[in-house]
Design a binder for these strands. Structure first.
Lengths: 250, 250
DNA sequence: TAAATTTGTCTATTGATATAGACAACTATA
DNA sequence: TATAGTTGTCTATATCAATAGACAAATTTA
């Protein structure tokens, strides 16, 4: 029986500071259940020993998480976990923002951040099956659940067919409802490509993240039931608050 | 010296060093097509200006990427992009390692790193529908394509039903073939949960990554066509080399 | 109340990160 | 063959990150 060494996983000289790595591990530990919600974290000395670093380094990590609203430290008592569980965002043939999070949050909605008309870039044109440079409408949106940002998306629609979808979106706050106004009763997700990277400046601002955070990125094409592409989208999810649940397919 | 505020997503005092952030951006730029394959990168002075940092900081980023085998620098000529495209790993009802990468690589196989018999943890027991503490066999594997590691997975199987699957795996190098020896002709993916995090020490070693790298994590349950759970697994993919393609469901 | 436990603050030192400037080495081209 | 453009190396300095130790302040427990 081979036992893997309890990978301490703290890497020096990596370009990622030790306190940031430890903060990430604590976040991960919370979401995985190593550190129980509302319970006290191990004392700083114990954490320092576990990760093989100085107590002050652990303190840096903790103070960053206190800033982020994940932990609360109380002198003489201990440090406590505040954070909620990661939301589980379902992805499947019928991916819809609002219905997907039902039951996990009491409130959720989409905010339209910006919209514009522009010539299609190559990947957008390919995704929508248009000629290069055809006019498309871009909608930039943010998804919020219980007043916390949980997604940030850009969606592209053929301008000729969906002229005015930006107004529909602003009024209804729903992609599904907006598409319905243009006669799209139903749509399906044709493809989804998934990747991950560090958050960039726009992600940090829109998703209310701290530098160094990770975002999950999905690039997807939605089609009508008869296979006609109607929407190309790129969505970004904060990995510390959201996991993606790929639905079993029928 | 006056600080430039060029809002180009480089964050100071974030716990992630500037050179690491710039290296990540260059990697992202390559995969997105900002920097074309085999072409020269902009000169160091230009990059330094673009990101608002000193030329030496850009050089740190570049030298890290040269170490990783992504770039090649030639004195007097320029710095060139070597990197291959990300592999696109399909995930769907019939997720199989080898067939999924067909056409993208000339060679691929699975290596058995370790195996053990252990009592099921809570999540494994839940996933397999077993009682807490029931004995399970754990297989630790690494997937390789063209001699580069592209995945690292732990799979759990009920020990009573699949006694000896470790040997079958060592002999066949295939999960599908090993399961067939136990009468499992076909299996389907019931659920997949996806997340991302920084690579830990074991990831770095097994996947041949540099500190600070990101891994995509999938947690999945495979079932027989009649819905009986047979395998619980956690897989880790290097985000810089792999993207996950969620197949459209039928 | 006294002792033990835990977080908070302070000083000091070392190494990694980032900036700055100068110049060498190499390549392509006018 | 100059010259411009590019990467490579060196020195110097300032700031951030991490370690180390000591003690204060607050809370819980014996």
């Amino acid at each position: 029986m081979i036992e893997r060494q309890q990978a301490d996983s703290i890497e020096r000289r990596s370009g990622v500071s030790l306190w940031r790595q430890i903060a990430d591990r604590i976040l991960h530990g919370i979401s995985v259940g190593d550190f129980t919600e509302n319970a006290a974290l191990p004392p700083e000395v114990a954490l320092a020993e576990r990760y093989g670093v100085n107590r002050h380094t652990v303190r840096s990590a903790i103070s960053a998480l206190v800033q982020e609203g994940v932990l609360r430290a109380e002198q003489g008592r201990g440090t406590f976990v505040l954070s909620r569980k990661r939301l589980s965002y379902p992805i499947g043939a019928r991916t819809r923002f609002s219905t997907g999070l039902q039951g996990q949050t009491s409130e959720r909605h989409i905010v339209l951040l910006a919209s514009s008309v522009e010539p299609a870039s190559q990947r957008v044109a390919e995704g929508l099956g248009l000629g290069r440079g055809a006019e498309v409408i871009r909608l930039e949106t943010r998804g919020e659940a219980d007043k916390r940002p949980v997604s940030r998306a850009a969606g592209w629609f053929e301008a000729r067919r969906f002229a005015g979808i930006d107004k529909a979106m602003a009024e209804t706050g729903s992609i599904t409802a907006s598409l319905a106004r243009f006669g799209v009763e139903d749509y399906l997700r044709q493809s989804t490509v998934l990747s991950a990277r560090h958050a960039d400046a726009a992600d940090l601002a829109d998703l209310d993240l701290q530098p160094g955070a990770i975002v999950l990125v999905t690039v997807a094409v939605n089609v009508t039931p008869d296979g006609q592409p109607i929407q190309f989208s790129e969505s970004r999810f904060p990995a510390e608050r959201v996991e993606l649940k790929l639905s079993a397919n029928s």
